[in-house]
Design a protein around this nucleic acid. Structure first.
Lengths: 185, 185
DNA sequence: GTTATATATATCAGATTGATATATCGTCAA
DNA sequence: TTGACGATATATCAATCTGATATATATAAC
C-alpha cells in the first residue's frame, strides 16, 4: 500500500493538515501504521498535483500557516481503485507485506546480554507505556474543543480496530506481568 | 537499534549465513522484526571489516558458495555495549521507536470503500494466514536434519517471546472471528 | 527569563525496501 | 521431457522512507 493511499484514506473522514495526519499516525494508530513528515508532506504535494486532493491555505494570526487538505471526487475514485487492487494483490499472493520493526521485542530477545537491573527497568517502563496507550485507545470522550476526529473514531471500522487493539494490548500486558520473572532474577 | 546489532544478536545463538538470518526474520520473528537482503548483506560486510564477525567460505558441490558468519569476542563486547546504550536511550526517552506498517490493518480501517465480498475474502485469507503462523510459532519439534536453530529457540528469552506472540495472535484471531460481522454484511 | 512543548511546514543525508540478476538442484505437472 | 516453480545462496540498486534539523510563534512551566 502506497503512502498516497494512506493519506487519501485518512482524508476520507474529513479535511486535515499534514500535521494532523502525522498526529493520528503517531497517536491512536501508533501500533498499526506510522509515517514521518518526510513521507507525508511530499505525498500531499504529489496528490495535489494529481488533483486527488485540494487545500485551503489558512493564514493564522501570529501562528504558522495551515494547509487544510480535502479529498476530491477524483481522489475518492482513485482510493477505491487502489484499495481494490491492494486487496486483490493480497488475495493472490497471501502476502500483505506487513513491515514490523519492534526494537523493544528484539531487546528482550537479546536481554541475556544485559544486566538484570536494566532488564527490570525496561520492563517497568514498557508496562507504564502500555497502560498509557491502553487509556488512549480505550478513551471514548471528546478529544478537544475543535474535535474533527470524531468521524474517524466513530466509524464501525475504527471501532473494530480499537477493540482489536485494546484486547491484544491487554493480553500482552497480562502476559508480560505474569511471565517477566523468566527474563530477570 | 541498528541493523548491525540485530545481526550480532542473532549470531549469538551460533554461526549463520546471511540467508539464514533472513530466514529467521521472515519466519518465526516475522511479527517482531524484518530486514531485507539489501540490509543484511551490507551489515555483515561492515561487521567483517570491523572484525566483529568472521566467516568461513564453504564452497559446496554444485551449489552456491556459503559464507558462514560467526561473532567474535570483540563482537560480543560490542553487542553488550550497544544493547546497554539502546536500553539507556529507551529509559531516558520512553520511546523505543517501534516502527510498524500493517497494510492489512489499514485496509480494514478503510474497508468501507471496498465491496462486501472483497472484505469477506480478505478476512477469510487472513484467518488462514494467522492459523498457519500460530502453528509455526507453537511448534516445538525439530526443524530440519541439520537443526542449528535450536539454541535460539530454546533460550528463556525466545520462549518468553514465543509465548507472548502466540497469546497475542490467538487473542487477535478470536476477536476477528467474533467481530468480523461489523465489517461486512 | 529561559527552557520546554505544541502547532505547522519543509528539506535532506543516510538507511531501507523490493525488485532484479546470477547460479544450481529438486519437484511437480503437461 | 521439458518447462515452470521454489529453495538455497549472494549481491546490487533505484526509489522510497526515516530521523534529524531548520524555521517561526505561542503558551506553560520552572
Amino acid at each position: 500500500m502506497q503512502t498516497d493511499t494512506i493519506c487519501l484514506g485518512l482524508l476520507m473522514s474529513g479535511p486535515k493538515t499534514g500535521y494532523a495526519i502525522k498526529g493520528i499516525l503517531s497517536g491512536p494508530l501508533n501500533q498499526i501504521y506510522n509515517l514521518s513528515f518526510g513521507s507525508i508532506y511530499p505525498a500531499l504535494g504529489k496528490l495535489t498535483r494529481e488533483k486527488l486532493v485540494t487545500f485551503k491555505q489558512q493564514s493564522q494570526d501570529k501562528k504558522p500557516d495551515r494547509k487544510i487538505y480535502s479529498i476530491t471526487k477524483k481522489g475518492i475514485n482513485h482510493l477505491k481503485e487502489a484499495l481494490l487492487q491492494d486487496a486483490g494483490n493480497y488475495i493472490r499472493s497471501g502476502n500483505y507485506g506487513d513491515q514490523i520493526k519492534s526494537e523493544y521485542a528484539m531487546l528482550l530477545l537479546f536481554s541475556e546480554a544485559l544486566p538484570d537491573e536494566t532488564v527490570k527497568l525496561i520492563i517497568d517502563e514498557r508496562i507504564l507505556y502500555i497502560k498509557q496507550f491502553l487509556n488512549l485507545i480505550t478513551y471514548e470522550g471528546p478529544l478537544s474543543e475543535e474535535d474533527n476526529l470524531q468521524p474517524l473514531r466513530r466509524s464501525p471500522q475504527a471501532k473494530f480496530m480499537r477493540g482489536l487493539m485494546s484486547e491484544v494490548i491487554q493480553t500482552a500486558l497480562d502476559y508480560i506481568e505474569k511471565n517477566r520473572k523468566k527474563l530477570h532474577g
